[in-house]
């Protein structure tokens, strides 16, 4: 094979690709925020005294965890308009990412709450603190610390999953690279470069998470 690599289309498309990285970040961060909201809400419902509510949450979590994101995003993409909600692909993708990440977040947060011993709660109550104070001042930080590693790896995964949003043409790195690829036919060059971009993106995300952790969770544990 006498194929010579030619990165010219990639270099020409660089500004577009860099902007698209911002799109990927936006999808990832909005998706994470929505996932956290769904996660916390889900955990609260999961502990409801009403059995049907608990089952609803369990069913939701298992449904999401046992089907591919690609199928989920297609489903949501077609379902929203039928429900009378007309959204652009990008917000649709954020909703899909949030729902997907939320299901995993529910399981992770639940584990964190369970990891806090009952004694911590009781010690706070015995000191005359209210339940809300106990949760905010005593439970929250150790619980967050306990789930932080799994939460961050889940969020890195969510960041990488944004590439699947290209299937509904949301604005992010993969869909932009597909456009450059189909214009130039320099498939390998484009995708190789973009893969490197993703590597940098996930590395940056990891550094941010680690930085936050070293600031916020600096207390020693046994």
């Amino acid at each position: 094979m006498n194929y010579t690599l030619d990165f010219t289309p990639v270099i020409d498309g660089l500004p577009n690709l860099l902007w698209a990285c911002l799109g990927t970040f936006t999808l990832a961060i909005c998706g994470m925020l929505l996932a956290i909201v769904i996660g916390i809400g889900g955990v609260i419902l999961r502990q409801s005294p009403l059995k049907p509510l608990r089952w609803l949450v369990i069913g939701f979590v298992e449904l999401i965890r046992n089907t591919p994101f690609l199928v989920q995003i297609f489903f949501i993409y077609f379902a929203l308009p039928l429900a009378g909600i007309r959204l652009d692909p990008t917000p649709t993708a954020i909703i899909a990412l949030g729902i997907n990440g939320g299901a995993y977040a529910i399981e992770i947060i639940r584990g964190g709450v369970q990891s806090i011993s009952k004694g911590q709660m009781e010690a706070g109550l015995a000191l005359g603190l209210h339940k809300a104070q106990v949760f905010r001042l005593i439970i929250l930080k150790p619980a967050l610390r306990a789930i932080y590693p799994s939460l961050t790896s889940q969020f890195i995964l969510l960041t990488l999953t944004t590439s699947i949003a290209s299937a509904i043409s949301a604005y992010e790195l993969t869909s932009v690279s597909q456009r450059i690829e189909s214009d130039s036919f320099r498939s390998f060059e484009v995708y190789f470069t973009v893969t490197a971009f993703y590597l940098v993106i996930s590395w940056v995300m990891m550094r941010i998470f680690a930085l936050f952790s070293s600031r916020y969770f600096s207390y020693p544990v046994r």
Partner: peptide
């Protein structure tokens, strides 16, 4: 308590100051 139940994320001093301040 039997298991002490000190708050792991607070220093000794902060453990002692928390409830007098908040409660």
């Amino acid at each position: 308590f039997q298991q002490f139940n000190l708050f792991p994320h607070l220093t000794v001093l902060q453990n002692c100051m928390l409830a007098p301040m908040r409660s």
